[in-house]
C-alpha cells in the first residue's frame, strides 16, 4: 500500500514537472536537424524559417546539418534523440519513401516520430528538349503513345520523388518511358539541354529558367495545383485528374515529446510561415508554404502520404536488391 502511494506520488510529481517543463519550454536554444548538406532545398527552407521560429519561441533556433544516406542518418538521430523538445527535425517526403527503398532503415516514419507541422510543398517540373514536338502534357502523352521509338526520362536519382513522379506519370497516362537516373538535378538538366535525353523531371525553378531561355520546354508542374510563383504553367492534374506528386517539407519531433511542446512548435512554424518575407523567400526557390493545421490533423495527413508513397515506390521497383 505504501509502495502504491509512493509510486502514485512519484507519478504525480513526474506529471506535474513534465507539465511545468512544457509550460516554460523553451528555456534554451532548440536544435533542428536537417538531413541534407547546407545549401540544399530542405536546408534553405529550414534556414529561412529559423529566425522567425526563434522569435516565436523566444529562444534561438539552431539548424544542424547531418547529411547522408538520403536524409535517413538525420532521421535516425532525431528518432533516438532525447524527447525533451530540444531536438526537432526537418523531414521531407524522401523519409516516407526510404523504408521502401533502403535495405535497412532503423526508424518508422510514422511511429518513431510525433508529427509537428507541415512547412511547404516543392514543385517539380515535367520538361522536354525543344526538339520534342509536344507543347503540353496531353500532346506528350499522345506522342509517347503513338511513336514506337524509345523515350528516356532523366531524374536526380533512383527513389527520389522526381523518379517516382515519373513512374506515377507513366502509370496514370498509360505510357512507356525508360528511367535514366543522374546524380542530382543539375546533371539531369544539363543532359536534357544538351539533347542527350528528351524528357526530365526536376525541380521547377531551374527548369523554368531553361524554358525562358528557350533551351527546354516546361510542360507542367507535377503537383495537384499550379505553382504560386508561376501560375501560367499548368498542373499535371489538369490533364491527368487527381495527379499529385510533389515533395513536401515538414517538421517532426521524437515520438515521446509532450503534446504541449509540440503544440508550441507547431504554432512557431505557423508564425514563421505567416511572415511575408518568409513566403517570398520560399516562393523564389519554388516552394509554396503549407496551410497551418493542428499536429493531429497533420499526423493523419502524413500517415496517408506514407501509404501512398510506399505503394508507388514498391511499384516502381526501386527497391535496392
Amino acid at each position: 500500500m505504501r509502495i502504491l502511494t509512493a509510486s502514485l506520488v512519484l507519478a504525480a510529481v513526474a506529471f506535474v514537472s513534465a507539465a511545468a517543463q512544457a509550460q516554460s519550454y523553451p528555456t534554451k536554444p532548440v536544435r533542428f536537424l536537417v538531413g541534407f548538406a547546407p545549401g540544399g532545398g530542405v536546408d534553405t527552407v529550414a534556414r529561412t524559417l529559423a529566425p522567425k521560429m526563434g522569435e516565436a519561441l523566444g529562444q534561438p533556433v539552431v539548424i544542424e546539418n547531418k547529411p547522408g544516406a538520403g536524409g535517413t542518418l538525420a532521421a535516425d538521430a532525431a528518432a533516438t534523440a532525447d524527447p525533451d523538445g530540444y531536438t526537432m527535425f526537418f523531414g521531407e517526403t524522401g523519409l516516407l519513401i526510404a523504408p521502401a527503398i533502403y535495405d535497412k532503415v532503423n526508424f518508422d516514419p510514422i511511429k518513431s516520430f510525433a508529427a509537428v507541422a507541415p512547412v511547404a510543398v516543392v514543385h517539380l517540373a515535367l520538361v522536354v528538349h525543344p526538339q520534342v514536338a509536344a507543347n503540353d502534357a496531353a500532346q506528350l502523352i499522345k506522342e509517347l503513345k503513338e511513336k514506337r521509338q524509345r523515350f528516356l526520362y532523366g531524374s536526380p536519382g533512383v527513389g527520389t520523388v522526381q523518379h517516382l513522379a515519373g513512374e506515377m506519370f507513366k502509370k496514370a497516362a498509360g505510357v512507356e518511358m525508360e528511367h535514366a537516373p543522374f546524380k542530382g538535378a543539375a546533371p539531369a538538366l544539363t543532359a536534357l539541354v544538351g539533347g542527350q535525353i528528351p524528357i526530365a523531371v526536376v525541380s521547377a525553378p531551374p527548369a523554368l529558367a531553361q524554358a525562358k531561355g528557350g533551351k527546354a520546354k516546361l510542360l507542367a508542374v507535377t503537383s495537384g495545383k499550379r505553382m504560386e510563383g508561376a501560375p501560367e504553367i499548368p498542373a499535371l492534374a489538369e490533364t491527368l485528374p487527381g495527379f499529385d506528386a510533389a515533395p513536401s517539407i515538414f517538421v517532426l519531433a521524437p515520438a515521446k515529446v509532450p503534446e504541449a511542446i509540440i503544440a508550441k512548435v507547431n504554432q512557431a512554424v505557423a508564425a514563421a510561415l505567416a511572415d511575408a518575407g518568409v513566403r517570398e523567400a520560399l516562393g523564389k526557390i519554388g516552394a509554396d508554404v503549407a496551410k497551418p493545421v493542428t499536429p493531429a490533423a497533420f499526423g493523419q495527413e502524413l500517415a496517408k502520404d506514407f501509404q501512398r508513397w510506399t505503394v508507388v515506390a514498391r511499384e516502381s521497383g526501386a527497391k535496392a536488391e
Partner: peptide, 26 residues
C-alpha cells in the same frame, strides 16, 4: 546556361535564386 558544374557552384546558383536571379541562359 545557368547549369552548375559542381556542388560549390550549385550553391552559388542557389544564392542567385534567393536573390531573385534565376540562373539560366538569360
Amino acid at each position: 546556361l545557368g547549369l552548375p558544374s559542381n556542388p560549390t557552384i550549385a550553391l552559388m546558383a542557389g544564392a542567385m535564386m534567393i536573390h531573385g536571379i534565376q540562373p539560366g541562359p538569360q
